[in-house]
Amino acid sequence: MNSELRPEIIQAFFKTGFSTPVIGVTGGKGGVGKTTVAVNLAAAVAARGRKVALVDADVDAPNAAILLGLSLDNPVDVPVTQPVFDHQKCSDCKLCISACRLNSLFRPKEKTILLMGECNGCEACFLVCPSDAISRGRRSVGTTYKNTSGKLTLYTGELHPGLEESALVVTAVKKRVFAEADQFDCILIDTSPGTHCNVIDALKGATHVLAVTEPTPLGAHDLDLMLSLLDMFKVSRSIFINRADLPGRMNEIQDVAATHETQIETGLKLDEDLLASYVNGVPVVDAYPDSLAAKTFMALADNLIMEYLP
């Protein structure tokens, strides 16, 4: 992707239509603790009496509900449009076959069109059919859920295993929460690992992004990629160093941070309390409020509240 994005694209990235602040939690590397940070930060903000929406946009493997000990309720299907062919009306022009850039349409014999491959719902075939022989069917690619527990509402997006349409599920869960954004004092978004387009879609609308990393060579490498991505969109960001107990490369993290002119917000070691809360599905701020981990998250919440919440 061009490192110089057109201003319209950057503008569109930030435009939300509401004033509720959005905080993205992302990381690049898998397993650095994004969800742990997102969940605990959300719980901390809720503990301060603010209404917070937590969005689990890691649709391949959404785990926020597990860390919160919540079930997944209020399912809403995420559909993608699929063509349905009326062979009676088909004029055998074969325009649909050439219009489909995924080569998904197959004509075994005259006036018979079958959908044999992947279909992402682009509707190119609808556009070219001269005989009105294609109607819009649908296929489920995932589900979004919504659960409320006290001041915290969890929105989850989940892709059906075996499918490829993660992007559609991310868009759907964001749409669901953004439609209700005015109900909340703050929206937190937990993204998937990586720096690909689904991460960008998850972060769209972010007022500020927390880049979670760990002080290892892999962590530093992936933080660099993540910050480069955030640089493209000129998003306000700071760094959270998780697993600060791991040996070695803290100075590399600091170098990467300096290169991207990014502050290190705070850090946290993995201790027994945090681990226990993780495996038991209770946020550490609720399970062990006096622990160092809980205090770190409460302090982080206070900073973000002061900076971004009205």
């Binding site: 992707m1 061009n2 057109r6 319209e8 694209i9 569109a12 219009a99 850039r101 995924l102 992402n120 682009c122 509707e123 190119a124 556009l127 070219v128 992007a167 387009c197 960008i200 879609d201």
Partner: peptide
Amino acid sequence: VIVSYSCEGCGACTLV
């Protein structure tokens, strides 16, 4: 303006 990071290259736009 094409938002290239989310463009799927499906070509529907070229058809209209």
